[in-house]
Design a protein around this nucleic acid. Structure first.
Lengths: 212, 212
DNA sequence: GCATCCATGTAACCAGTTACATGATTTG
DNA sequence: CAAATCATGTAACTGGTTACATGGATGC
């Protein structure tokens, strides 16, 4: 999961760890962010696997001025460039400065693998995959959505079967709260299914005017 | 989480591990069941803490004939009672038979603690708490629901603030899928909130005709 | 008497967390 | 220069998972 998120973000711009966490909170919502304690080891692991690599990052500006409290960060960047003029940038890595990562070709492949993985049963993972599904081509994207749709349909069927399987008196014996919970869960599933249907529909009709 | 589920189930009838897992799948849906690998250690832990204890279970019949494939289990029970007549039941525990657990007074208190815990931020835990909230008195239940409602309202506010905080062009630069995801998440939150409102409403109006 | 299901448990692992340690940079 | 914030990292722990080992009971 974390690999997917990291590679997905790095696919667009080079970033350092601290920034990655902020972007992640921004994109996925603060609810599903990851902690530094898993972020940095994950980056190290990806680097060891050759899927990302530390880069010098002297050319392009800070590419993600999107969200809060980046003022200090901007200033930091400026100062680094300024000092870079007298050669300091060259050993940024060594002096425990920011470690800016970029994605490699292997990382690109890995990201693609993660995105096209046929297993769509994990809810959290699926969410992240949607977040980065722009990196898929239209056909692959459609497959992803349809697989997920099938998974949700299966879950609904399962629930309906259970309900029908319950003897009637048994069903009524179910406590109010359990019943309410059960119904709400079913509703939520339908809600998700409807959303997927909209996504699929958009994908189908929109596939004419690709590009731009 | 697992403690809550186990104590909640045992609060109603004595059960052995294997059966607990089945009941859990039945009540919480097969999606959020726990594996044996965490179930048995958890039971052992609860037993060590004096919150559940192994019982002989010779008096009452199998109290949960609710769901599938209990035929064999019934038969097993019968045979055990039959043999019990010639004294075998006494050392069921030693011979690696079923180990039937019951809740203790400490366990009862612990369950209550878990149910009234003011932290309602964890989604999975909250679900399980609703599943067993019949063990709370009406006022405590209402508090639980209202706390959760406030939590969800807070999350929605947070999201709205973020949206407003985004510069307009920045917002439009958001990719279709990210936007769709974002909107769907917001919808889901509202959906959950509406459900809670219904629960709270039922709780308020229903509190006149208490008991049964 | 052999396959199958019921039943309990252990060990290794996994993906994440919190808390802590460290240090660089900015800002008042 | 002190306080706050940016930034990277480690260690211990948590709450689960899968895979495995074992064995009793039932059904054919």
């Amino acid at each position: 999961l974390i690999d997917l998120a990291l590679l997905g973000l790095l696919r667009e711009h080079e970033l350092h760890g601290y920034e990655l966490k902020k972007r992640l909170a921004d994109v996925l919502g603060p609810r599903s962010t990851v902690s530094f304690g898993s972020l940095y080891p994950a980056l190290a692991r990806l680097e060891a696997a050759g899927e990302v690599k530390a880069v010098e990052h002297r050319t392009s500006g800070p590419v993600a001025p999107s969200s809060g409290s980046l003022k200090g960060e901007l200033a930091a960047f400026r100062s680094r460039v300024r000092q870079g003029r007298d050669g300091w940038v060259e050993n940024v890595r060594g002096t425990r400065g920011k470690k800016v990562y970029g994605i490699t070709e292997r990382g690109d492949e890995r990201l693609h693998e993660l995105l096209v993985d046929p297993d769509v049963s994990d809810d959290r993972t699926f969410t992240v995959r949607v977040a980065f599904c722009r990196h898929l081509d239209p056909a692959e994207r459609l497959t992803l959505f349809e697989r997920r749709r099938a998974e949700l349909a299966r879950r609904i069927d399962e629930r309906v079967a259970t309900t029908n399987g319950r003897a009637r008196d048994d069903r009524s014996r179910l406590d109010t709260y359990l019943r309410s919970l059960w119904e709400h869960d079913t509703d939520t599933l339908s809600h998700d299914l409807a959303w997927l249907d909209r996504l699929i529909d958009q994908e189908r009709t929109g596939s004419q005017e690709t590009s731009s």
